[in-house]
Computed example of a mutant assay.
Amino acid sequence: MDPLLTRLRAAGFDAVSADLAPGGVVAMAGMATLRDGSRVFAKTLQGAGADLFEIEAEGLRVLREAGATTPDVLAVTPDLLVLEPLCPRPDDNERFWEDLGRMVASMHAVTGERFGWHRDGWLGRLRQDNTWDEDGHAFLAQRRILRWLPEPLVEAAFDAEERRSLERLCAALPDLLPPRRPVLTHGDLWRENILTDRAGGPALIDPAVSYSWAEADLSMLWCSPRPPASDRFFAAYNEAAPLPDGWRQRMRVFHLRELLSDIAHDDGGWGAAQEVREIIAPFARRQ
């Protein structure tokens, strides 16, 4: 944790110690104790893009303006982000997950005219292409799925026919997904980016915001390991913002972006490539 403490002190925080935070897979992050006994949450990243933390701080602000709870940003520099501390989420509390479902539905009520964002962002250590597009199917295909194919680890994970199968799936997206308006999305809404504020309610961290498909956010939770109580998230969300029929069956298609990102970040050893193969199997050419 020495690099984190050094950068905190350089930013004016009299940090005396820091404890590594669990759950993160990209940045060095931890809860730091200051000399006066107060605590802050801080994160740093060796070789970070010069605008990575600036974009993350902007995302937190935009989500808060849309009604989501996010931590206060205490400081942001090219190599450091300092936030107010939050608490672990209560995985077995159904009320918590219901509140989160309504929060995310409220956030998704903020709509846009186009898919994308006014600047590119980051997903983990790699750039997120947010180029504006009025066609949601083309945006999902080009900016969120096929975007990962040139990454070296993704290229190595799939043969030529598997890549063509993925391209055929993307060409079929208009038949697979009903058109929806672009909405403000968190962009990385998996369980580790959900915490608890001081009042015990849900709070969101680590966004990769853009105007995108609402179901892209939902797929991050639906397709990842999660506690049983989180079923109440989907029930509460659907009460506040009813989803078109068949949404459960569409979740794996939206989850392709996350699976490919995991592989590109060298975190696909748990079976991400095999999941991709299962999803694209119907689009393989029969011999």
Rank of each mutant, 00 (worst) to 15 (best):
A29D: 01
L260S: 08
E258C: 08
A18P: 03
L8R: 12
A264Q: 00
G37K: 07
T77M: 02
R119Y: 02
D72V: 12
G112N: 08
H137K: 02
R257H: 14
V40L: 03
G121Y: 01
L83Y: 00
G67H: 04
A138T: 14
R102F: 00
L173M: 11
R286S: 13
W97M: 07
R250W: 07
D266S: 13
R144S: 03
W117L: 14
A105E: 08
G101P: 03
V73W: 06
A157P: 00
L173E: 07
G269Y: 09
G116H: 04
G124S: 02
P3S: 11
V276I: 07
M103Y: 09
D129E: 13
A141D: 01
D135Q: 05
N93F: 09
W117A: 12
L100F: 11
A109H: 13
D175N: 13
L176P: 00
L189H: 04
D217Y: 07
L176C: 12
G271K: 06
V62A: 14
E84I: 08
V40S: 05
P78L: 10
A208D: 10
A199F: 04
Q142D: 13
S230Y: 01
N193L: 06
Q46N: 13
D92F: 04
R144E: 06
A75E: 09
D175H: 14
R286T: 15
L218H: 02
P202K: 08
R168A: 14
D231H: 06
R277N: 08
E215T: 07
R180K: 10
D159G: 13
E167L: 09
Y237T: 05
D267F: 03
P88T: 10
P152W: 12
V82A: 04
E167M: 09
A157N: 03
W148N: 02
T33E: 15
P71Y: 08
R144M: 06
I279L: 07
T6A: 15
P71Q: 11
A172L: 02
L146H: 07
L80F: 03
A157R: 09
E54V: 06
